[in-house]
């Protein structure tokens, strides 16, 4: 007797979720935008402090038409991608070593955690002294803040490989390379994808932080420039594009995950 109402309430829960996600969430966003416009038009604040959304759009439009916007976006994109690539090349082998070797793990892990604990802004001066203000310093910052989540994901993924599957691979007389390709890598893949999602989002943050330390181009350079000229629409616009870029990075990795981990949906 209790089954029918339970089923019904489950269906209505699903409907509610659907309504929330596709109807109420967009309305909330539009409401906040309307509130913003209302505050600006009521002139509580001068426009150079809180610009009208349309001012931001116009400012970006002008930059876009002059080809300036694209150049700065590409610079930040390149920094984030290069830094993330370095991070992957560094963190995956490191994570694998830490996961597989008790000795090296005991030796290295305290230092790896200590490096991770250094706030990147605190060593900004050193980064500029050592690497200058060109793309090298940005790649360094991106790598510096993205490698740890990736390494951690690799360690957890490789350590959690089923020990009986390892026994079987030994019984099959698989060599270490075969064990890696056929067992460890696919088994760790869900963890790797989670780590990569975190790191990919951080990569854009890292590129922006790197540019704030000192740069002559890039989206965060536009923010610094906008601060100097009290150009609030420029600052808002650059922040918005950085956010979109960050989401896009996440989206690409999520799509990759969807494809690579197709077996989980079967």
């Amino acid at each position: 007797m209790a089954v029918v109402p339970a089923t019904r309430s489950r269906i209505s829960q699903m409907n509610w979720f659907w309504v929330l996600r596709w109807f109420l969430a967009p309305i909330l966003g539009m409401g906040l935008l309307a509130l913003w416009i209302a505050v600006v038009e009521a002139e509580y604040y001068p426009r150079f402090i809180l610009p009208h959304p349309f001012d931001i759009f116009d400012r970006m439009q002008v930059l876009y038409e002059r080809g300036i916007l694209e150049r700065h976006v590409m610079v930040t994109l390149k920094e984030a991608l290069a830094g993330l690539a370095f991070s992957i090349v560094l963190a995956l082998p490191l994570g694998y070593i830490v996961a597989r070797s008790k000795w090296l793990s005991a030796l290295l892990l305290p230092y790896l955690v200590a490096i991770r604990a250094i706030p990147v802004v605190a060593i900004a001066a050193l980064i500029v002294i050592w690497l200058g203000t060109d793309i090298k310093s940005k790649i360094f910052v991106v790598t510096f803040i993205t490698w740890f989540p990736l390494m951690e994901a690799t360690v957890v993924g490789v350590q959690n490989v089923d020990s009986h599957l390892r026994d079987l691979m030994r019984a099959y007389q698989a060599n270490p390379l075969q064990i890696f390709w056929k067992l460890e890598l696919p088994a760790a893949m869900p963890n790797l994808m989670s780590g990569l999602k975190i790191s990919a989002t951080l990569a854009v943050v890292g590129a922006a932080v790197g540019e704030l330390i000192g740069a002559s181009q890039g989206l965060a350079y536009l923010i610094v420039f906008g601060r100097g000229t009290s150009d609030a629409p420029l600052v808002f616009g650059a922040v918005g594009i950085l956010t979109v870029l960050s989401l896009a990075f996440y989206g690409v990795v999520a799509a990759l995950e969807h494809f690579v981990l197709a077996w989980r949906r079967a």
Binding site: A171, Y172, W263
Partner: peptide, 19 residues
């Protein structure tokens, strides 16, 4: 050392879920 002449079965099926 382990040999291919010996087959192993454990309590759990220990299949590879991605295959």
């Amino acid at each position: 050392s382990p040999r291919r002449k010996i087959g192993l079965v454990f309590q759990d099926a220990t299949l590879m879920p991605w295959r």
